[in-house]
Amino acid sequence: MNVNNPASLEQSVPVALTKNIQLLAAAALGFVILFGVGFAPMDLAHNAAHDTRHSVAFPCH
């Protein structure tokens, strides 16, 4: 981001903000998927992802 340019100074704040919001959204999606694969307590999710959970050492059973 070009902070030295006074014309872009006004715009730089919203751009940085939307960047962080988008990063947060992407991280939230990552957490939701990770929970589904690694931690969801339903038997269905556990059985489908069983070998993956064991191989990456998630607490299982």
Binding site: L44, D51, T52
Partner: peptide, 29 residues
């Protein structure tokens, strides 16, 4: 006894899918 994928190709495919989703989540983070 709840549903579980059959041993063999079905189980491997589900494991592949779970691996993909887990890698996707890790890569996003």
């Amino acid at each position: 006894e709840s549903w579980a994928p059959d041993d063999g190709i079905e189980r491997s495919l589900y494991t592949l899918l779970a691996n993909f989703l887990m890698s996707l989540a890790y890569s996003l983070l």
